[in-house]
Measured scan of single mutants.
Amino acid sequence: DLRKKIVDLHKSGSSLGAISKRLKVPRSSVQTIVRKYK
């Protein structure tokens, strides 16, 4: 699940930009998912 991957990467200390590059999703999507998770 993409959300879980993003949250896991964020927990392990990756920046939003790094996560978005790695998973090839827009940075804004990463930000939204991380914000919802918090």
Rank of each mutant, 00 (worst) to 15 (best):
T32W: 09
L23R: 01
H10G: 01
V7G: 02
L23Y: 03
V25F: 03
R35W: 05
V30A: 04
A18V: 08
K21F: 02
R3F: 14
Q31D: 08
K11S: 07
G13H: 02
K24P: 02
L9V: 00
L9I: 01
L16D: 05
G17R: 15
L16M: 11
Y37E: 07
R22L: 15
L23E: 03
G17H: 14
P26K: 09
K5Y: 09
K38E: 12
P26L: 05
K5W: 11
K4I: 08
Y37S: 08
I6Y: 00
L16I: 15
R3Q: 10
A18M: 10
K11L: 14
S20R: 02
L23I: 04
K38A: 11
V34L: 11
P26N: 08
L23P: 02
S14H: 15
H10D: 01
I19M: 02
D1T: 12
Y37A: 10
K21A: 08
R22F: 11
V25T: 04
I19S: 01
L23F: 05
K4Q: 12
Y37P: 05
L2G: 03
S12Y: 06
V30L: 04
S28Y: 11
R3N: 08
G13V: 01
L2V: 08
S15F: 01
P26G: 07
D1A: 13
S28F: 08
D1R: 12
R3I: 15
D1F: 12
S12G: 11
Q31K: 14
K36A: 11
R35F: 04
S12F: 07
S12A: 14
I19A: 01
K5L: 14
I19F: 00
V34A: 03
Y37L: 11
I19V: 02
H10A: 07
T32D: 13
T32V: 14
L9M: 13
V30Q: 02
K36G: 07
L2A: 05
S15A: 05
V7P: 01
K38W: 10
P26H: 08
S29M: 15
V30C: 11
V34P: 00
L23K: 02
V7H: 06
I19P: 01
K38D: 09
K4P: 03
D8Y: 12
I6V: 11
I33V: 13
L23S: 02
K4W: 11
D8Q: 13
K4E: 08
G13I: 03
L23Q: 02
V34H: 03
R3S: 10
V34D: 03
G17Q: 11
V7Y: 09
S12I: 06
H10W: 15
A18T: 09
K5T: 10
L9F: 05
R35V: 06
K24A: 09
L23N: 03
L23D: 03
K36N: 10
K24E: 07
R3T: 11
V7E: 07
I6W: 01
K11C: 15
T32E: 14
V25Y: 04
S14W: 15
V30Y: 00
I19N: 00
K11F: 08
S12K: 12
R27A: 07
K11Y: 07
R27F: 14
K36W: 14
K11W: 05
L2E: 02
L23M: 07
V34F: 00
V34Y: 00
K21T: 07
D8E: 14
S20N: 02
K11T: 11
V30R: 03
S14N: 12
V25R: 02
H10F: 15
I6K: 01
I33K: 04
S14I: 15
R35D: 13
T32F: 08
R22D: 09
Y37G: 06
K24V: 06
D8K: 10
Q31T: 08
S20F: 00
I19R: 00
R35Y: 05
V7M: 13
G17K: 13
S29Y: 15
L16W: 04
I33L: 03
L9Y: 05
G17D: 11
G17F: 04
R3P: 06
R3E: 13
L16V: 14
V34N: 02
V7K: 04
S14P: 02
I33E: 05
Y37H: 10
L23V: 05
L23T: 05
G17V: 10
D8H: 10
K4C: 09
D1W: 14
I6E: 01
S29L: 15
R3D: 06
I33T: 07
L2R: 06
H10M: 10
K4D: 09
K38N: 09
S29K: 15
S29N: 08
K5P: 01
K36M: 10
S20Y: 00
T32K: 15
Q31L: 06
K38I: 13
A18P: 02
D8V: 09
I19E: 00
V25L: 08
S28E: 09
Q31R: 15
R35G: 08
T32G: 12
K24F: 06
A18F: 09
K21M: 06
R27V: 13
I19D: 00
D8P: 01
R27G: 04
D8M: 14
V30P: 02
V25S: 03
I19T: 01
S15M: 02
S29E: 12
L2K: 06
I6F: 00
V25D: 04
K36P: 00
S28R: 12
G17I: 11
